[in-house]
Design a protein around this nucleic acid. Structure first.
Lengths: 157, 157
DNA sequence: ATTTCTGCAAACGATTTGCACAGGG
DNA sequence: CCCTGTGCAAATCGTTTGCAGAAAT
């Protein structure tokens, strides 16, 4: 994982008077061991590979810290659980396309969108704070070939 | 409420072999007595003004029917509960701006967005199915005047 | 009659939290 | 030492569901 991210987190913890613990280290290590999106439960599994003593509660308590620190983005797609995006720092302006077939989440950026959204907010009398585009879509690949080679997070509930 | 909507619902129920009951009538009447967005709990309260015997379970069981019938739109903003939009038939392509201060949901349409989203999906190899723009924003009014005259759904949890 | 509906209350499931102990500063 | 962090298990809360009786066709 990126040492700068780890450093940033430690500074944040210090600033807040919070401590560096083995569990938090394991969770941080796990959280940035991938560029994929994951759930709290996914992260628990990943963190336990580093430190088996990590509990679910600690994961749930650590996630908001990483979000507040700005290194992780929380995303609620109206699915059953929230997703977290460790790739946020590198691509702060991305949007998400969610495949309803395979649950794959694809990131994309588009310069037009940002302008458009800022315009719209201004027109309505608001100042945009978080702009999210969610596109639910179906794989062309699946429709044409009958199967889908993408990451399949489905099956859960 | 619009008689055409009611008619459309009755046809849907008939087609599905479902029955017309006093409770469903009350819920339908309540569901289209406003153009505002509401939650399941809001709808329960509204329906009980028409028929006090309506239960929460029946509301929760009826909502998906109205959604499937196409007269109501379900929206999950990643808040604590889902919202329902009875205004969907008249404005099927609208997007939502949610004020983080007062929880007001403002609808807007924009022709550019639709084109943009279809392009993006195609570029990524998907066929867009549901396109949602969510803008979280802050009232300019609140910031400037220190108060907000908009509908305030806040306070819950 | 037969089938769908209903209200009730219990179940559900992701997330949060109270508590008593562990461990970092 | 003191105060924060932790695991555990119980609580939370919108929503769903099993069941037995009620109502529609």
């Amino acid at each position: 994982m990126d040492a700068a991210v780890r450093e940033r987190i430690y500074e944040f913890l210090a600033k807040e008077g919070l401590r560096r613990t083995t569990q938090r280290d394991a969770i941080i290590g796990a959280a940035f061991s991938t560029t994929e999106h994951y759930t709290a439960e996914d992260l628990l599994v990943m963190a336990r590979k580093i430190d088996p003593t990590v509990s679910r509660a600690t994961v749930y308590r650590t996630l908001p810290l990483l979000v507040e620190c700005g290194v992780l983005k929380e995303m609620d797609f109206g699915r059953d659980f929230k997703f977290y995006d460790p790739n946020y720092l590198e691509h702060p302006n991305h949007n998400h396309l969610i495949c309803v077939d395979c649950n794959k989440i694809v990131e994309f950026e588009d310069v037009h969108i940002d302008t458009l959204e800022t315009c719209i907010s201004k027109r309505l009398g608001f100042t945009a704070e978080k702009k999210t585009i969610r596109i639910e879509a179906r794989c062309d690949e699946l429709r044409e070939k009958g199967s889908c080679t993408r990451n399949n997070r489905g099956g859960r509930r």
